[in-house]
């Protein structure tokens, strides 16, 4: 039999290290669509039963999300408003069947350019926890994702958790997904935005765009332009050329590169406007750039 479903991380890591090329299975929502046969082939390491890999826990330096946490669990969890984008994304992945099975860690390891989980995690400055029998390392998510369907995961490693540092758990966030239909859709573009407002000014801003480059991107230049803005003017400070400069979209069946760039800027303005609307005594205006 070429299948194991260990219950401890150590057992899983032993197998991962001792069986080169073993397929790591968790929710199955990416692995099964990749084959037309009735079963997966090759040795399979099923990490869905590993203890400590599901659910969200508070740690001294922030929140720890087990990599095997399903979208449903994440979407229904009691998380701070800074995580709203992540929870909204969780409720937009596929539909309920996919959300019940698919996991955050799987989404990151598959590393699709259109992975819905990535932009919200980028604005939360997430770090991934990578374990192997050699030890544990943490990696900023942006560095972990090295390209379209490529990651820095070593052949003997398992992505065990995602950490959200306390410094990024401030403020409020929002996620918007743009697709050609309502449900079960791969994004043409998507954005996540997290803002901290203080004394009716933007104190900090984190913006990320997905499906518009091989790996979803933060937009530091655009973010910097928002600092100090009054809520009503913040969205207007998002310049299309600055957004475009941060992205490298492609033409595909879902949309053109040109459209993606425009849409990303528009989605960011709306996301920021929406977050600013929540601020007391402000009436934001959305203007086209």
């Amino acid at each position: 039999m070429r299948y194991a479903r260990p219950t401890t991380l150590n057992d899983a890591l032993e197998l991962r290290a001792s069986t080169p090329g073993i397929t790591v299975l968790c929710g199955g929502t990416d692995l099964y669509p990749a084959t037309e046969r009735p079963a997966l082939s090759g040795p399979v390491l099923d990490i869905s039963a590993v203890e400590g890999m599901r659910g969200v826990t508070q740690t001294a330096d922030g929140l720890r999300i087990g990599a095997a946490t399903s979208w449903s669990t994440l979407g229904a969890g009691d998380l701070p408003p800074s995580c709203s984008a992540l929870q909204q994304a969780a409720r937009e992945v596929g539909a309920v069947q996919i959300q019940n099975a698919g996991t955050l860690g799987g989404n990151l390891c598959t590393a699709s350019p259109a992975a819905d989980g990535v932009p919200p995690l980028l604005v939360l400055e997430a770090e991934v926890e990578l374990c192997s029998t050699r030890g544990t390392r943490r990696f900023p998510l942006g560095g972990f994702l090295t390209g379209a369907r490529r990651t820095a995961l070593a052949p003997d490693e398992i992505l065990s958790a995602v950490h959200l540092p306390n410094r990024a758990l401030a403020g409020q966030s929002v996620f918007t997904k743009l697709g050609a239909r309502r449900y079960l859709v791969i994004s043409i573009a998507m954005v996540a935005a997290r803002l901290e407002l203080e004394d009716a000014r933007v104190r900090s801003a984190a913006l990320a765009v997905g499906a518009c480059s091989a790996v979803a991107q933060r937009l530091p230049r655009v973010e910097a332009a928002l600092i100090g803005a009054a809520p009503a003017e913040a969205a207007g400070r998002i310049r299309s050329d600055a957004v475009a400069a941060a992205l490298s979209p492609i033409d595909d069946v879902r949309g053109t590169a040109e459209y993606r760039t425009q849409a990303a800027a528009e989605l960011l303005r709306r996301a920021v406007a929406k977050l600013c609307q929540a601020a007391p005594g402000t009436q934001p205006r959305v203007t086209a750039a």
Partner: peptide, 26 residues
């Protein structure tokens, strides 16, 4: 066989799942 159509939806411990994406082992 890809979780795109939901025709194979079953309940696993009461929750909806695509049977085509679910390994027997789970």
């Amino acid at each position: 066989d890809a979780g795109d159509c939901g025709a194979c939806t079953v309940l696993i411990d009461g929750e909806a799942a695509c049977a085509c994406l679910t390994p027997l082992g789970q």
